Each structure stands twice: as C-alpha cells, then as structure tokens.
Amino acid sequence: MNHTSSLDNEADYSDDFDFTAEPSAQSCENLTVPNELAGLRLDAALAKLLPDYSRSRLTGWIKDGAVLLNGKRAQPKDKLVGGEVLEVTIVPTEENQAFAAEPMDLDIVYEDDSVLVVNKPAGMVVHPAAGNWHGTLLNGLLHHCPALAQVPRAGIVHRLDKDTSGLMVVAKTLPAQTQLVQQLQARTVKRVYRAVADGIVPFDGKIETQIGRDPHNRLKMAVLPFGGKEAITHLQVLERYHNHSYVECKLETGRTHQIRVHMRAARHPLAGDPVYGNPRHSASDEVKAAVKSMGRQALHAYRLSFVHPTSGETVSFEAPMPADIYHLLSVLRLEAGLDSSLNHADTGQTPAGGQDDDDWDDDDYDVEVVYVRD
C-alpha cells in the first residue's frame, strides 16, 4: 500500500537543529548609545545594538516597558542624540522557555551512557511547538537527564505522533546522536508498528508511494502522484476479524504520518484515527465503543532495533500493546470467536465474514494504490 492535526509525527529529523542561545530566564543589558547612532529612532538603534533579536521583538519590548531610556520608559519612535544609557530587559520567548526540565514519569525501557529507549504514552507530544510548549517528552527527558541540554533536540532523533504510543530511541551524547541519525538515513534502524485497521486487509505486501502535504488541506499529509517524498511501508496481517484487521507495519522510510496515510490511501485507515480515519466504518456497538474509548488512532510502535552507537552490537526492544488497543483487540477477537488472550495470534486466520465500506467517499485521493507482494 502506497500517510495530524499538528503534523507532530512518526518521522525522522532530517535537518540540523540547535537550541537557541538565548537565556531561559530574564536578564538585563546595559548599553550606551554610540554617537554614530545619533538621529536614529530608538527601535532602529536597538536593532543595531542587539542584532540577535528581531526588530519586531525589540519594538514589543519597548512598548511593554522593558526598555528604559536614561532611566525612563521609552517609545519606539524616540530619537537618539548619542550618549544615552539604555537598560534593556531581555525577555525570553515562550518557545525558549519551553526548553525547560519538567518532572514526569517516563517509561524508560533501557538506558546506558550513550542511549536511552523510552516507551512514549499516547497523548504526549514529543517536541515543544505552538500550542504544546510544555509537558512534552523533551521536557521530561531534560529532567530525567539534565546533560541532554547539551545535545541538540535533547537527543531526540525521530518522533511519534502525539496519539501514537510506543518506542523511541534517544541519544545521550552528540556522537551517539550523529551515529543514530546516520543509521536512520541509511534505513538500518528497524521500526515495527502494530495497528488495528478498518476492513479486511487482503494479504501481506508492500506499500510504496510518494507522500507530501495534502494540496486540499495543508495540515494533513497525502499520497501524491508526484512531488512528494518516497515512502515505503511493509505490511503483514496478523489477524482478521469481522470488519477489522490486526496488522504489523515495518517502516523502510520515516515520512510524516506515513503509516496513517498509507493505510488511509489503501482504504484501510486505522481504527479511531481522528484525521485520516473513516468514522462511518461498519462495526458492532461493542467495537464502536472500544474504538471511541481509545480517543486516538490504534497505532503502537511495538519493536525498535538499531546498532548500538558505542558497542556496535544490534539491540532490539519491544513494548507491549497499551491497555486501550489491547482492549479493542480483545473485543474484536471475542466477537470473531477467537481466544481473547492474544498470546497466539494466527497470522493466517480467515475472517468469519467481513466487509469493507465500498461506499466510503474517497474523492480526495485520486491516486491508485496497489498492494505489491514482497
């Protein structure tokens, strides 16, 4: 099969990123206006004296009273003659303040001097961004390991959607981060997800498409006929039920919302997906209640394997299915007359009947998606 509201995602960081050098708390700058700036407005002079800050930000500080001219509150348009004393209170941005340590309970699966592996719960944003400046995984990591403040992105090298649970690896040193990023680029980090999809997925295979921003909705991603980035997902059906399938998805690439978009484009969106899902999918009242109770897409990063950046050995970790998805699977298995324990999934299980929503309107996706057998 050839796919958030905020585009916080199961993607890899492809661009270098460094924390801003601004202080995380207020500080004060005392400046004397040089004679060569005589005749300039205060806001223009400040832009030259403090080039690390934008003109609009400096103007805002002046209007907020954070800039004193010879001990008195000033206005942006005040003209300078040279020799004035400026007292500027440097006010950190909300974004800068977001990179602060916050105590929280993190499910650390593994940790040593180079890396840690965390099992992220659903509902947690990975990285601070507009609307989510606090309470993110990054904030918790900085509290758990203060030394991560010296590593770009606090050591985070790949991400998960806010409402996707599961495993992530975090580098504790810059060399380890560089090594892991290289592995991601070489596609040697193995990431396996488990999910519940709508409908009866016909067989195992590979979804290979291009993915980019949806031309009809810039807050979503979509399969594109051209102009997107290569996206490859390997799919295996673990079990089939009346109207759903339990699947395993192995990422070869790590595009934004890749699994969610691929399953959506293949007409088997993930159960409960609020962005790419099908709210009209046919199901019993019990199954609908289980899906609704999740309040998220049924997607979990189940297994993670990579070459340890220090030892050179391949290490692998697994995180059990979270309670909400486990409950949905139990309901589906009971309804299909299967053992609800999930301890021995029959990957060749044939569903006792089942249907796809053939009348589901799919006009937004005019790209034909085919299953390519591995």
Rank of each mutant, 00 (worst) to 15 (best):
Q150E: 11
M221Q: 14
I259A: 07
Q177M: 14
A345D: 05
V125Q: 01
D273I: 03
Y326M: 11
T59W: 01
Y371T: 12
G83T: 06
H158G: 07
L141Q: 11
Q179S: 15
S282R: 06
Q75F: 12
D204W: 09
L58C: 09
R159G: 10
H234T: 14
L40F: 12
G39H: 04
A130P: 12
L42C: 08
A298C: 07
V109M: 05
V81F: 02
L224S: 07
R240N: 08
L46Y: 14
A283L: 00
S245I: 01
P23R: 02
D12Y: 03
L69T: 07
H268A: 10
D214E: 05
D64L: 08
H262Y: 11
W61P: 12
G228T: 10
L46P: 15
S311Y: 07
P128W: 00
L224A: 04
Q75I: 06
L328C: 05
P146G: 01
K229N: 13
A21R: 15
V261S: 10
Q185R: 15
G39L: 03
P51K: 05
D363F: 12
H216C: 01
P152R: 02
V196L: 04
E29F: 13
K79N: 10
K172T: 08
G228F: 07
H216Q: 11
P76W: 01
A11H: 09
E252K: 06
G354R: 08
W61Y: 11
P322R: 00
A11R: 05
T20F: 03
T4V: 00
M294D: 08
T164F: 09
S305G: 13
L142E: 04
G140F: 08
D105H: 12
V169R: 13
D18C: 03
L37N: 11
D359G: 13
A289D: 03
R373G: 07
E22M: 06
R240M: 04
V201H: 11
L167I: 11
S24A: 11
D366N: 15
D358N: 14
L148P: 14
G254V: 00
